[in-house]
């Protein structure tokens, strides 16, 4: 929490430079989010770092308004700007694709959904050896299946906590519920995940 405080105070004082610093500080998490949320069809066409670059330009425009009344932490705000930017990118590219005569539904303004597909793609992208791929694939497929089977709320909270690596406070802030409620949702999602894991995979009880 305190680092948010410091960031906001610094932003207030140092402005754009501090914004650039903050963005590079959070870059790895934000990149994860872009990679996670980007439409699979754009994966080969749009580089995540380009999205982040655009995010910075957008954040610079909106910084003043944010600092007037920072309702969320800087990271949560940057995350929001990133997702908005991603929507713009989606719209731009998918429109082009549609112009090119391909049937693509236009994304709505909602945050792009992280699909199991993108999670899997992400996983595969990191593969180095076939044997590792085999092990990974098996584990991942199981986890993926289970995650996919969870209801939207449960899945989203797990994605926020573990794929986007948000803290509970941040999840609460993003989802717009009290911290205790966010924590309860997370615990419930974990329990359901656990339940589903044992049911689906018959995986060994940990000893």
């Amino acid at each position: 929490m305190v680092d948010h405080a410091l960031e906001i105070v610094q932003l207030d004082q140092a402005g754009e430079q501090a914004l650039a610093d903050a963005l590079s500080f959070h870059a790895s998490r934000l990149l994860r989010i872009v990679e996670l949320r980007i439409d699979p069809r754009l994966a080969g066409r749009v580089d995540a770092t380009d999205v982040l670059q655009e995010t910075f330009l957008e954040a610079r425009k909106r910084l003043g308004r944010y600092l007037e009344q920072p309702r969320v932490s800087l990271f949560v705000w940057l995350r929001g700007v990133t997702l908005d930017t991603l929507i713009t990118v989606h719209r731009r590219h998918l429109a082009q694709m549609r112009d090119a005569g391909r049937e693509v539904p236009l994304q709505t303004a909602a945050a792009p959904q992280a699909s199991s597909l993108s999670m899997a793609r992400w996983l595969i992208a990191d593969l180095t050896s076939p044997s590792q791929a085999a092990i990974r694939d098996e584990t991942a497929r199981r986890i993926e299946q289970v995650l996919d089977a969870l209801d939207d709320v449960d899945r989203e909270v797990l994605i926020l906590r573990h794929f986007e690596q948000l803290s509970n406070d941040e999840v609460a802030s993003v989802v717009g519920v009290k911290k205790a409620a966010a924590s309860r949702r997370y615990m419930r999602a974990l329990a359901r995940f656990r339940e589903a894991m044992t049911g689906v995979s018959g995986m060994d009880q940990p000893g």
Binding site: I143, L147, L158, H162, M187
Partner: peptide, 13 residues
């Protein structure tokens, strides 16, 4: 129990 689940998801993530 919780940490085991966390570990699994984090492995993937």
């Amino acid at each position: 129990t919780v940490l085991e689940s966390v570990l699994m998801i984090e492995q993937l993530a």
